[in-house]
Design a protein around this nucleic acid. Sequence first.
DNA 1: CCCATTTCAAGAGCAGTGCTCTCGAAAATG
DNA 2: CATTTTCGAGAGCACTGCTCTTGAAATGGG
Lengths: 232, 232
Amino acid sequence: MSSATSGARARARVEVTAAIKDEARRQLAADGAAKLSLRAVARELGMVSSALYRYFPSRDDLLTALIIDAYDSLGAAVEEAHAEVAAAGPVRRWTVACEAVRSWGLDHPHEYALIYGSPVPGYSAPVTTIQAAARVGLLLVGIVRDAHRGRGVAVRPLPDTLRAEAERIGGDLAPDLPPAVTMALVAAWAQLFGLVGFEVFGQFNRVVEDRSAFFSYAITQLAHSVGLLGQE
Amino acid sequence: MSSATSGARARARVEVTAAIKDEARRQLAADGAAKLSLRAVARELGMVSSALYRYFPSRDDLLTALIIDAYDSLGAAVEEAHAEVAAAGPVRRWTVACEAVRSWGLDHPHEYALIYGSPVPGYSAPVTTIQAAARVGLLLVGIVRDAHRGRGVAVRPLPDTLRAEAERIGGDLAPDLPPAVTMALVAAWAQLFGLVGFEVFGQFNRVVEDRSAFFSYAITQLAHSVGLLGQE
DNA sequence: CCCATTTCAAGAGCAGTGCTCTCGAAAATG
DNA sequence: CATTTTCGAGAGCACTGCTCTTGAAATGGG
């Protein structure tokens, strides 16, 4: 029962697993999560549907694997885009990271819906996905923290009610950040995905025309709100 | 072929249609859109599944009807909550409206997912839904417009690139609003649903503990961004 | 090296789904 | 009253997720 690699057998297993995920990802990107069919995946791979259950015990498990991959794909895309401007100032780094989230969402609408739209399988995400989901958030934290170390950020003061909460959140990942900045950053994090989600899901359809310009404006406002620009 | 009411027959038809939607809404609220089954709805109503197709030509059409109803339900909830503080200042009106959106989302997570999560049926929403979808947005516009008429709102200046866009958007529904306010309002609109969506879909799960306090803080920041508070 | 154990693909089969078609009864219309 | 339209019921098709059994491989210990 050892999960260790036992030679050619184990190698074939990871290969088949990867092939299944690849084909599933293809169907997901083409038709969305609702139309993803285990039987169609198996058919396309030339195997019978019951064989597929040796690799994924259920459709939801396959979907969960795709969710984690989607988080990873988004995280990698954002990190890659950010890496090219890692030496620039915080505003540029912030802008590039946010734009990368938007680009990825527009390029992968169904994957975006899978992770930031309604959670399709069970209700609460397995713990495995949490790490993958945190990548973008952590990168944004890093940008703001560097800016704060560099020259101090100015943000609207925080109500006392939230001081403890902000210190608790900040304690885990950015103890050097003032509580007001931590809280503003969490809000900006959610708001960024609100902006991208509205565009990806067509909520801007008869409202906003020049969506690139609008998004660029909106994330600049967000940069303000976390103290990356001028005084606030 | 007249669609006018032709007596008892037409009355029965709207009654059955309503019963179908009610039962479908029940299943939607209980198990989510993915598990909504035409056959189960028919079974529960004591009719055979094929009879249901006389009222809704497909599952997607039934879902579309539920989407419109969900938009209306949300719109009504927000308008009702707002009506009780219609005489108060703009900040209170803004706060109450945003809180009503959050409450409705937390109370109806599956309906919320249906309209603001991934669009389940076809890709682009039918024109019918647009009106229903606009209710909350229009209410927010009204609050900010009143505030502007009252004593003028102050907002960060708008880049020239977006001036035309802002005037186009504002021209349809709030010509008296300065372009910078219009644009900030559109952004705040999307960001509000980003905040609610993150909470409803569990994205705050191991991050934010006191979500009520956090939300209250975040929408106050949004009120700032549309010029409802202090300077800036 | 050989034999017991595990791993896996294949097939049949079950319960459920959306949807279409036909048929007969009932209601509405001229 | 006769005719047209409307509607419910049933059978049936193609599809889904999933389970169980069967037989052939590959694996690993004696």
